[in-house]
Each structure stands twice: as structure tokens, then as C-alpha cells.
């Protein structure tokens, strides 16, 4: 399998994630988009480890999975608090930092 096409896949995933994070209003959607970005990164690690023969790089993919789990926990906790205090889960309804 050529590196090039896999690289295109991971870029497509990354861009999908960026697009999602910029356009989705629902907080869960945002979390899902972040997962896409993280997985694009993980795919990149795996891809380059196969291409250059660095096995150590595959460990980073495992780290990213663990990190993603932690991130999902923290993100869900934030969303629950948000829905309880602000009575909303839409990102553009929360503008406390508006100047």
C-alpha cells in the first residue's frame, strides 16, 4: 500500500475533523470531531513508522488512544456541567467570554 494514498486518507480525516470542529454546534459533535483529528494524527504516526521502519513511533499511536479516552472523559464531564449550569449544549450559545 503506497504511503501517498494513506497520507491522503489521514489528511482527509484531519480536514474532516477541522471542518467538523469549526462548523458543528453541538458539543458532542465537537468531541467527535476532535476524535477524528486525533485519529488522523495516530494514523500518521503508524503510517510513518511503517514507511521508515521505526517501531517506537507506533507506541505514540497507543498513547494517542489513551489520551483520546482521557480527553473524552474530561470533555463529557465539561458538557454535563455545561448542560446543568447553562441549560444548553450548543457551543455558540455559550459566549461568556464576549468582549
Amino acid at each position: 500500500m503506497p504511503v501517498q494514498s494513506l497520507l491522503l486518507l489521514s489528511h482527509a480525516l484531519f480536514c474532516l475533523g477541522i471542518y467538523g470542529i469549526l462548523t458543528r454546534r453541538h458539543a458532542i459533535g465537537l468531541l467527535l470531531s476532535i476524535e477524528l483529528i486525533l485519529n488522523a494524527a495516530a494514523l500518521n504516526f503508524v503510517l510513518f513508522s511503517r514507511a521508515f521502519g521505526h517501531v517506537q513511533a507506533q507506541a505514540f499511536a497507543l498513547f494517542i488512544i489513551a489520551l483520546a479516552a482521557c480527553e473524552a472523559v474530561v470533555g463529557l464531564a465539561i458538557i454535563i456541567r455545561l448542560s446543568r449550569t447553562a441549560k444548553t449544549v450548543f457551543a455558540d450559545h455559550v459566549d461568556l467570554l464576549k468582549g
Binding site: D92, V94, D95, G99
Partner: peptide, 18 residues
């Protein structure tokens, strides 16, 4: 003049970053 940048909406900030 600068305050209009601060919309408070996270996704716009992120958009700027991107």
C-alpha cells in the same frame, strides 16, 4: 474597535487559529 473580535464563541477563535 477591538472588542468586536471578542465574540466569546469558541469556534470563531478556533477558526482564526486555523
Amino acid at each position: 474597535t477591538l472588542r468586536w473580535i471578542q465574540t466569546g464563541i469558541v469556534q470563531q477563535y478556533l477558526f482564526v487559529v486555523v
